[in-house]
């Protein structure tokens, strides 16, 4: 009988141990799903939930605070995720918190991450809709990577082609195998260096000139920079302009005189024609002029004689004194 009781006790312990383990496991799993604590509901809307499903975890700032309750299709571009959040987190989650869908580790389940917004907002209420941020899609990233790979392949093939062309180029290989080339190149470089030095020197000198011009030194500087000289030059130019205008008038008058002369020369009865073309007239004129000269000389002699005449001598002395004063 005692043995039977002992067996019954052993069986009871065995069964109760099993049931306790079952209850513990159910409690631990249920606790994870917020089954044994009070919770409230929050919502978030995404364009793509990347395989998120009911039961996935919800984390607030990396701490597990709830689970996904439902994933609903609202329309062709909007998926609503209904989350059951632990009541304890209500006093921390604000309406402007941002929600994303991520992964638990590299290969883990999907998870909804709620990130606090640095800007303080109002605390959430039951059934509030949180802001969402669409994460970089791995598919898009792979697509970009594929394009990059394609481009890399094209570049590689073109590089191969270039290398082939280089290898098959006799000119290039002749250049590469030319032993005198380095010395020539070195000499050329020395020449280039020397030219560059000269050029630098010239540039420096040019700079000095430019500086001088800026400073108003030299004729160019005076012209370009000295405002007084610029005024003088301007006036000179004006004068030149005026002189040119006057010269033009003079030339016109000369032209008219020349035309008069021309007409005079053309007239055989005129004086000019006789003066320039009639030799007898010229001879007569020459004789007349000789006569005038002779007459003038005789007149001068007469005048000299008058100076020595006692009647006029006083007058001439008076005139000489006036001149001397």
């Amino acid at each position: 009988m005692a043995n039977k009781i002992a067996n019954n006790i052993k069986l009871g312990v065995f069964v109760i141990a099993g049931l306790l383990l079952l209850i513990f496991a159910l409690y631990m799993i249920g606790k994870k799903s917020n089954m044994f604590g009070s919770s409230f509901t929050l919502r978030a809307r995404f364009r793509n939930v990347d395989g998120l499903r009911a039961g996935n975890n919800v984390r607030y700032a990396g701490i597990e605070t709830g689970t996904v309750e439902k994933v609903l299709i609202l329309n062709d571009t909007t998926i609503e995720v209904v989350m059951s959040i632990d009541e304890k987190a209500r006093s921390y989650i604000r309406k402007n918190a941002q929600t994303t869908i991520g992964n638990e580790g590299l290969m883990g389940n999907k998870v909804v991450n709620i990130y606090p917004n640095p800007v303080q907002g109002e605390l959430v209420k039951e059934n509030d809709l949180l802001q969402t941020v669409q994460q970089a899609d791995i598919g898009n990233m792979i697509g970009t990577l594929t394009r990059t790979n394609d481009n890399a392949a094209i570049i590689a093939s073109e590089l191969v082609e270039t290398v082939k062309r280089i290898n098959s180029s006799p000119v290039l290989w002749r250049i590469l195998s030319d032993t005198t080339l380095p010395a020539n190149l070195s000499a050329t470089m020395a020449g280039v260096r020397s030219s560059a030095e000269h050029l630098n020197h010239s540039v420096a000198e040019l700079q000095v000139i430019v500086n001088d011009i800026h400073a108003g030194k030299g004729a160019a500087g005076l012209l370009l920079e000295d405002t007084a000289a610029r005024g003088t030059a301007s006036r000179a130019l004006n004068n030149i302009h005026n002189v040119t205008a006057e010269a033009n008038g003079l030339m016109q008058r000369l032209d008219s005189i020349a035309s008069i002369l021309q007409s005079g020369v053309g007239n055989k009865d005129g004086m000019l024609y006789g003066l320039l073309s009639d030799t007898s007239f010229t001879q007569r004129l020459s004789r007349s002029l000789n006569n005038v000269e002779n007459g003038t000389a005789a007149f001068n002699e007469d005048m000299e004689a008058l100076k020595h005449n006692f009647l006029l001598k006083g007058y001439f002395k008076k005139q000489a004194r006036k001149k001397a004063q």
Partner: peptide, 18 residues
């Protein structure tokens, strides 16, 4: 260890097996 074990387990793992 216990946390890691129950973190991955769900009712859909335990109940059908049980």
């Amino acid at each position: 260890f216990i946390w890691q074990v129950f973190d991955v387990l769900d009712f859909t793992d335990l109940m059908p097996a049980f």
